[in-house]
């Protein structure tokens, strides 16, 4: 699968924690060319796997041989693990709940994130300024809180379809506006 991306933008991710959503992680697990190009593009960042994404990647695998391959792949040392510590989990959960309230009040009709998507959004909030997320599900990370840094476009060889992945980051300024709106609503109760 060919990757189409502005390679000059690679320097934007130097020193950043690059989190992969499960859709992108599964895609690079299936395609050598996409995997190599992704490594090249994010070579100055730290590829990081959230524990919940690891869970999502490994669950529901029918073939035993593929399950073993997935376990080998995700355990390789180029992926820096985000620690699943309880103190951090509690903060991520708190972020996730707050973001879900904001999404609802900001009237994002297409935004119906799963629990894992919300927790990942909470993770991005926790690592603001230093974390980015690669995902195909942009609608689960609405523009009222998240910015798009760049798109990664990949051409699927079998049918020529272009798959577009957003590289997102949390925007504190936009969040603060939404949070103030939420507080104003709460004061009216």
């Amino acid at each position: 699968m060919r990757l189409f991306v502005d390679e000059r933008a690679s320097s934007k991710f130097a020193g950043k924690y690059v989190f992969f959503d499960n859709d992108f992680l599964s895609e690079i697990f299936s395609d050598e060319e996409l995997f190599k190009k992704t490594l090249e593009f994010f070579s100055r960042g730290f590829l990081t796997i959230d524990p919940l994404i690891k869970f999502e990647f490994l669950r529901d695998t029918y073939l035993p041989e593929q399950r073993k391959l997935k376990e080998d792949f995700i355990s390789k040392a180029i992926f820096t693990p985000a620690i699943s510590h309880n103190d951090i989990f509690v903060r991520l959960q708190s972020n996730a709940l707050l973001l879900s309230k904001i999404y609802t009040h900001e009237k994002q009709p297409n935004c119906k994130p799963s629990f894992i998507d919300l927790m990942l959004a909470g993770r991005m909030m926790f690592h603001e300024n230093i974390g980015v997320l690669v995902t195909r599900n942009k609608k689960d990370y609405p523009s009222c809180v998240f910015d798009i840094e760049i798109f990664l476009n990949a051409e699927r060889p079998k049918d020529g379809v272009i798959l577009s992945y957003s590289v997102l980051c949390f925007n504190r300024r936009k969040f603060n506006v939404c949070y103030r709106n939420l507080q104003t609503l709460d004061q009216g109760i």
């Binding site: 690079i28 697990f29 299936s30 050598e32 100055r44 593929q66 391959l69 792949f73 180029i78």
Partner: peptide, 22 residues
């Protein structure tokens, strides 16, 4: 820069095995 070559090679081999399995 960018990543340990031996690890990348192992991962490419895993991806190839997965593709062939599919």
């Amino acid at each position: 820069t960018p990543y340990p070559k031996s690890v990348v090679k192992e991962m490419l081999d895993i991806i190839r095995q997965n593709r062939e399995l599919i």
